[in-house]
């Protein structure tokens, strides 16, 4: 299964938020207490990740993160 917030594969318990396999989102998309981060927090984190690891232009990184999250079940309620 994959993280319902960002799409990362969830293969081991450590991949899940707080190591809790009943949570359908990953450790990167959760606060330390295991709660899912807000949409804006995940968007900011994913945008920063794209810039830090691939050097994408800030606007391109944000648009890419927005497009990725638009396909994720955790954010399907958003327009």
């Amino acid at each position: 299964m994959n993280c319902t917030s960002c799409g990362m594969p969830l293969r081991t318990p450590e991949d899940h938020a707080s190591g809790d396999v009943t949570k359908e989102y990953c450790r990167h998309c959760a606060h330390p207490d295991g709660q899912l981060k807000s949409y804006d927090e995940v968007l900011a984190g994913m945008t920063a990740f794209l810039q830090r690891t691939q050097g994408l232009d800030p606007g391109v990184a944000r648009r890419t993160a927005t497009a990725t999250m638009a396909k994720m079940p955790a954010w399907s309620g958003r327009a």
């Binding site: 794209l50 691939q54 890419t64 990725t68």
Partner: peptide
């Protein structure tokens, strides 16, 4: 395609990073 391609690269970049 852009989004799919960046998806491939993001996964690779994550593990390499």
């Amino acid at each position: 395609f852009d989004a799919e391609w960046v998806g491939v690269q993001s996964a690779v970049a994550h593990h390499i990073a």
